[in-house]
Design a protein around this nucleic acid. Structure first.
Length: 774
DNA sequence: TGGGGCCGGGG
DNA sequence: GTGTACGGCCCCA
């Protein structure tokens, strides 16, 4: 018997079960960094609702499949007790019996038959990945470099040991084709590079990529990494390698013991005994990244990036003409990928440990799935069945309230913000799929304007979960105060508290998501309804107090800062509404256009905030965005009208004289659907279609950069891919009138500068008449 | 000239 | 494949 500390990172089916009957395993690392496999036995199961007719069917089916166990049990479904048959047994038999029962009783009468055994094993035993456990196990031996144990018991460790020693390997790949998109049936891999923190391992496909893959397989076994990290591995590198291997008749044996990699849940790729991290998935659903590039991610974590990056559309040309530069660039990429992983390790492993999703696909899972996994984990403690997603139709409901701003420049404005408004509403009003009712009655708080009520006699699952998240976050933050800000543990805890906050904020959106197991249309509608009511009542009170309200959106109000009255206002919110609000920001000056969700301000600590305006939008060119920023900054800092106009005049002048680079005039737009689904002739779609005709596969999520060139007709006929354009062919007049002028007009109009003035400047600059308009 | 398609960002 | 509200461009009738 051995007792060891093990950092669990995955759950799987063991490679070799032998005669032990062990059919499931936890994978982990010991404190020396050895991979361990902890085998045990787990009978998979599902539930069948006990009702008229199901007893007879169950009886028949059980006789037909000996070895299956059936027990009558009670569980909760949306808070109500239900009687069920728990059917359990060997995985193979269980699958067959499940199919028969689905057919005979209807899918809606079976529960948890749609959850994988590995997940059930983890949640039933309350095991979380990326967490240390004190493990009691019997040593079985070593196989393929993995220490195999028979698991006897485990309990979470109180003290956090950080991470075990991890061998991390970054990978990147180059494949080019003369015909655009590389095709694994046709195009060999040109180049792969690995980086382990010290050395590069390079593989050239010059003598065919069969040799390349053989060498790669060999080196993976030799280097034996615990973590394989890439940027777009799951969407490009791994599927390409697999398809290429299939073509060449060679396996992609990058798992431990040469196990082949395979595609798994949500489209991620599994490597036996290793953690596969794709950092592209991290940037893709993080709104702070505009273009979703590795360069942005590197910049975000403070890593230098090259002056000249290469877009995949440019790879073929570089491979042909400037191969050394491309290879150097790809070597920078693996270095950056490696370094970024270490910067994000706490976020990735923290998310995995909190949600219970193994690190392999915690980034692949959408935020809805992450939230759901956490709920499943928590539902076990309440004896709640995991509900199913069956037969739903999309419906929409009203959201937050947005006030029309008072146009113009305002001084001394306070932004009052409700603390976590929707999570607070969920907790305070007990809004949850299992508490929502549609009729008034005993123990029900009913909202007749909406025709929806909530039970107050039972605590709902989501309010319970949100409360847990808030409590746990408070504990983590308390812990943080007792340790040094410089310690690694501080960073781990900081990531954790952020994750807990994000999860709490996700629960409202989750409840309104059509694909959610705990979906509640009425619940989500009630939350926004209560949010609107709260903000309306607050505004009314603020008016009563004589505060000047200039704007408001969902959970915030912008008011003239009168310290005493604001204090009184906040107290009132607390005592009368039972909600918490705070001063989120103080602006020396704020500029509102007539439009909602678009403004800019200068805070008391001299920060420029720009919200919704073109400056923050990637579908405006860099030249226009930078100009708007400068004009806004000057305006908010009190510059004269002439000074602002000069700023505009200078850029117009630059453009007219051709003093700009292509990068400054590129407009980036995302492809959000399959090309064939587009009905409109928009510029970026026209360019995407052209690329497509050149053989490029245009995927959802890709960014198309284009410029408008001189010529006749609608814009979509004059949009050119940025790599095909030079400054000489750019339509300067388009950029002056449709990019530079509008962004300046937008922010100067509220202070009384007319379009006409700007238009005259735009017309006159460079023609010798511009001085006339000063 | 106004409505629809489309995109991106706000809270 | 978390929600809704919103503005503004471009195209087209």
């Amino acid at each position: 018997m051995a007792v060891e500390n093990i950092w669990i990172f995955d759950v799987a089916h063991p490679l070799y079960t032998g005669s032990s009957g062990e059919n499931i395993c936890l994978l982990g690392l010991d404190s020396e960094g050895n991979v361990v496999e902890l085998n045990s036995h787990f009978d998979d199961y599902f539930f069948v609702l006990k009702k008229q007719g199901s007893e007879k069917v169950i009886g028949e089916v059980v006789r037909e499949f000996p070895g299956v166990m059936v027990d009558e049990v009670v569980r909760k479904l949306f808070g109500k007790d239900v009687v069920l048959y728990r059917v359990s047994g060997d995985a193979e038999v269980l699958r067959r019996i499940r199919d028969v029962l689905r057919r005979r009783l209807g899918e809606e009468n079976l529960f948890e038959d749609d959850i994988r055994d590995t997940i059930k094993y983890m949640v039933d035993n309350q095991v979380s990945p990326c967490t240390w456990y004190r493990v009691n196990a019997i040593d079985v031996g070593v196989y393929s470099g993995i220490k195999i144990f028979s698991l006897k018991g485990l309990e979470p460790l109180d003290t956090d040991l950080g991470y075990p020693p991890l061998k991390v390997l970054a990978i990147d790949m180059v494949v080019v084709s003369k015909l655009g998109e590389p095709d694994p049936k046709r195009d060999p891999i040109n180049y792969i590079v690995l980086y382990d923190g010290n050395d590069y391992y390079e593989y050239l496909g010059d003598r065919g990529d069969l040799e390349l893959i053989k060498a790669l397989n060999r080196d993976f076994s030799r280097l034996n990494p615990n973590v394989v990290v890439s940027f777009a591995g799951n969407s490009f590198i791994w599927p390409y390698l697999l398809a290429r291997g299939k073509r060449l008749g060679i396996g992609i044996g990058l798992g431990m013991g040469g196990q082949e990699i395979h595609q798994s849940l949500y489209g991620h790729f599994s490597f036996f005994g290793r953690i596969n991290i794709d950092l592209k998935e991290y940037v893709d659903d993080n709104p702070i990244f505009e273009r979703k590039t590795l360069e942005e991610l590197a910049g975000y974590v403070g890593i230098d990036y090259p002056e000249k990056s290469i877009d995949v559309f440019g790879y073929p040309l570089y491979w042909e003409r400037n191969r050394d530069y491309l290879i150097n660039y790809v070597k920078w990429r693996v270095r950056a990928i490696y370094a970024v992983f270490w910067e994000l390790i706490d976020q990735i492993f923290g998310l995995s440990s909190v949600t219970g999703i193994p690190p392999d696909y915690v980034l692949t899972a959408s935020s809805g799935r992450q939230a759901e996994h956490y709920i499943i984990k928590m539902s076990r403690k309440r004896g709640e069945l995991v509900p199913k997603v069956l037969g739903r139709r999309a419906r929409s409901y009203p959201g937050g309230l947005v006030l029309t701003p008072k146009k113009g420049l305002h001084e001394n404005i306070a932004v009052i913000d409700f603390k976590s408004m929707y999570p607070s509403i969920i907790m305070k009003y007990n809004v949850s799929p299992d508490t929502i009712v549609k009729e008034a009655g005993e123990g029900v708080e009913f909202f007749s304007e909406l025709g929806v009520g909530v039970r107050r006699d039972v605590r709902g699952i989501l309010p319970d979960i949100v409360e847990n998240l808030v409590r746990e976050r408070d504990e983590v933050r308390r812990l943080m105060r007792s340790i040094s800000r410089e310690s690694p543990m501080y960073r781990i805890l900081d990531s954790k508290q952020r994750i807990l906050k994000i999860l709490a904020n996700t629960m409202y959106g989750y409840m309104g998501w059509l694909g959610a197991r705990w979906y509640s249309f009425e619940g989500a509608s009630l939350i926004t309804f209560l949010g609107r009511r709260i903000i309306k009542e607050s505004i009314e009170k603020a008016r009563e107090l004589g505060l000047n309200i200039v704007y408001g959106d969902t959970d915030s109000v912008f008011i003239g800062y009168d310290e005493d009255k604001v204090r009184e206002f906040l107290d009132w919110i607390n005592s009368s509404l039972g909600m918490e609000a705070k001063i989120d920001k103080l602006y020396r000056r704020v500029l509102f256009t007539e439009a909602k969700k678009r403004y800019a301000g200068l805070t008391v600590d001299d920060k420029i905030d720009i919200v919704g305006l073109e400056y923050v939008r990637r579908d405006w060119c860099e030249l226009a965005r930078a100009l708007q920023y400068r004009v806004l900054k000057l305006l908010l800092e009190g510059a004269s009208r002439n000074r602002l106009l000069d700023e505009f005049r200078d850029v117009v002048n630059r453009v007219r004289s051709g003093d700009f680079s292509i990068d400054e005039v590129v407009i980036w737009e995302q492809i959000t659907r399959d090309l064939s689904e587009y009905k409109a002739n928009a510029p970026h779609i026209a360019v995407a279609r052209l690329l497509s005709s050149r053989g490029w596969r245009i995927r959802k999520g890709m960014f198309i950069g284009y410029v408008i060139v001189k010529g006749e007709g609608p814009l979509y006929k004059r949009a050119v891919h940025y790599l095909d354009a030079t400054p000489e062919v750019v339509d300067k007049e388009y950029y002056i009138k449709n990019q530079l002028l509008p962004v300046v007009a937008r922010v100067l109009e509220p202070i009384g500068v007319s379009d006409k003035v700007l238009f005259s400047i735009a017309e006159a600059v460079g023609t010798g008449l511009d001085r006339f308009f000063r």
